[in-house]
Simulated assay, not measured.
Amino acid sequence: MATPTAPAEMSRRKQLVETYRLTKKTDPRIGLVLIATFLVAGAIGFTVFKVLPGSGIIEWILAVVGGLLFGLLAAMILFGRRAQRSAYAQMEGQPGAAAAALRMLRRGWVTEPAIAFNRQQDVVHRVVGPPGIVLIGEGNGPRVRQLLASEHRKHDRVAPGTPIHEIVCGNGEDEVPLAKLVRTVQKLGRQVKGPELTDILNRLKAIDARRSAVPLPKGPVPTSMKGMRGNQRGR
């Protein structure tokens, strides 16, 4: 059986096609919505450019080009948002979903999935970035909070004074829904700078060196999040 191509190895066109295919699974009307958006925005763009000063063929060329640009831009923005919503919907409730969502973090963040887990497959992921150390747990609330507390103590011992944040990803009380996880992490603020970040990562090697390999629980988690991030950034 052929091995699926990683998003990073796909061409931009293939990434768009794959993202569209996955989005259509949970958003079957996406095609009609995008066409309607393109037509409406295109008509607005055409009108805007048509009323600008000009005459003859140049006026019409500018109006047509402006309409096409308005339509494409609006359709791509809407597609990016609905694709992201669809991807989160497909990942919801799947093992390792939080780790997949954290791939959406941009440069300046170092993500380590599944740094700790228990027999019940409660998992803790780690992100190191401007806020310091962020520990993200997913699984049963009380159990995963115990796991988070244990990891918090371990990290505090090797990186004393470093801000350590704990987040439980889920839909329960005091938990962060999957769709809001990345935004919540980003909103934790900037508490460490570049040189401090490097020092923290070096200190954390002491913990990671003592860990056995921890595989992520297997599950049908969409693999296009990374490619979708590139599409949204226009890369």
Results as ranks from 00 to 15, higher is better:
234 G>V: 11
149 A>E: 14
151 E>P: 01
177 P>T: 05
99 A>T: 02
114 A>N: 15
162 T>A: 13
67 G>W: 02
219 G>F: 00
47 T>N: 06
37 T>Y: 01
202 N>Y: 08
49 F>S: 11
83 A>E: 06
60 W>D: 12
187 K>R: 15
166 E>F: 01
92 E>T: 11
179 A>D: 06
4 P>G: 09
74 A>K: 04
110 V>Q: 15
206 A>F: 01
216 L>R: 11
97 A>V: 04
58 I>L: 15
77 I>Q: 05
116 A>Q: 07
85 R>P: 03
185 V>W: 11
114 A>P: 01
204 L>K: 03
186 Q>P: 03
126 R>V: 11
204 L>W: 01
110 V>Y: 09
233 R>T: 09
28 P>D: 03
169 C>T: 06
179 A>E: 13
183 R>I: 05
17 V>N: 02
36 A>M: 08
60 W>E: 12
219 G>H: 00
84 Q>C: 02
98 A>I: 00
111 T>E: 10
102 L>M: 15
31 G>N: 04
184 T>C: 09
109 W>C: 10
98 A>Y: 02
152 H>L: 15
206 A>Q: 09
48 V>K: 06
168 V>C: 08
35 I>M: 09
30 I>Y: 00
114 A>M: 04
155 H>K: 03
107 R>W: 03
203 R>K: 15
68 L>N: 00
47 T>Y: 13
227 G>E: 07
196 E>D: 07
226 K>I: 11
129 G>E: 08
82 R>N: 03
201 L>Q: 12
69 L>V: 14
31 G>I: 03
124 V>E: 08
102 L>K: 06
217 P>G: 02
45 G>R: 03
78 L>R: 13
172 G>A: 08
64 V>I: 14
73 L>W: 08
85 R>I: 10
12 R>M: 12
42 G>K: 06
1 M>K: 10
53 P>N: 13
89 A>T: 07
53 P>F: 14
117 F>I: 04
157 R>Y: 03
230 G>S: 14
61 I>V: 15
185 V>M: 10
67 G>F: 06
183 R>V: 12
111 T>D: 04
33 V>Y: 09
213 A>R: 13
33 V>L: 07
184 T>W: 01
158 V>S: 05
223 T>P: 00
32 L>Q: 00
82 R>S: 04
205 K>M: 06
149 A>S: 13
224 S>C: 06
117 F>H: 07
153 R>L: 12
105 L>P: 10
207 I>R: 12
123 V>K: 06
125 H>T: 07
87 A>M: 14
2 A>R: 15
167 I>G: 12
128 V>K: 08
75 A>E: 09
50 K>M: 15
136 I>V: 15
6 A>E: 13
225 M>K: 04
82 R>V: 03
185 V>H: 09
70 F>D: 02
27 D>T: 12
30 I>D: 05
53 P>L: 14
213 A>K: 09
155 H>I: 00
16 L>N: 02
35 I>A: 04
90 Q>T: 01
190 R>N: 13
214 V>A: 14
7 P>L: 09
40 V>W: 02
29 R>K: 11
90 Q>Y: 00
197 L>R: 12
184 T>N: 14
138 E>Y: 01
64 V>M: 10
194 G>P: 00
